[in-house]
């Protein structure tokens, strides 16, 4: 079995009835899709399969031979966030963060399909994703601002490298 995961091709050893969620987490080592209810109810395992948001926990590997999978790891990196990631960051749209990967993938799928998504579109697209911390308000705000292109995806300030203090140590012998 093979899959294209975040742009790279993988040959997989998992049996065909293994759920995509287990393949991603256990075999490939991508931990952003979360194992929540594992019954298709909570939405936090959502990934994009050929661009469509799908529940990874309910998708057997055998059904998607050769498909292109996108997870949060494929959206952006800390210095170059995707619009949805940047919007979540800007709007404080995550609290505990467990639902966040699924929310982000559903939002990314929605905006790819409908770049000018309305509030009702967003409420509909996220209706199957449970969040118990935020009350959804800031998540919906974030997705709407990403839809309106009101986010800055660049992160100009690089983070300090470990072991290399950003402040020069005055007076030190080093």
């Amino acid at each position: 079995m093979s899959l294209i995961i975040n742009g790279a091709e993988y040959e997989l050893a998992s049996p065909p009835l293994t759920s995509l969620l287990n393949v991603l987490r256990e075999e490939v080592g991508l931990l952003s899709p979360k194992a929540g209810c594992q019954q298709g109810g909570c939405g936090t395992c959502t990934v994009l399969i050929d661009g469509e948001p799908r529940r990874a926990c309910l998708t057997p590997l055998g059904a998607i031979e050769g498909a292109a999978i996108t997870t949060v790891e494929g959206l952006g990196d800390p210095r170059n966030l995707s619009p949805v990631q940047a919007a979540f960051h800007e709007h404080y749209a995550a609290q505990c963060g467990f639902c966040t990967p699924g929310m982000m993938m559903a939002a990314t799928g929605l905006l790819a399909r409908r770049p000018d998504a309305t509030r009702d579109d967003v409420l509909e697209a996220l209706a199957g994703h449970f969040c118990r911390c935020t009350g959804y308000v800031k998540i919906v705000d974030a997705v709407l601002s990403a839809a309106a292109g009101r986010v800055d995806t660049t992160r100009p300030e690089p983070e300090a490298e470990p072991g290399e203090p950003s402040v020069v140590i005055p007076g030190s012998p080093a």
Binding site: C37, G41, L123
Partner: peptide, 17 residues
């Protein structure tokens, strides 16, 4: 015995705040 048998608010229950 199912996740869905415990009802919790979704985005569809979101009121105006």
């Amino acid at each position: 015995d199912q996740f869905g048998s415990y009802l919790a608010p979704s985005t569809k229950d979101l009121p105006e705040f």
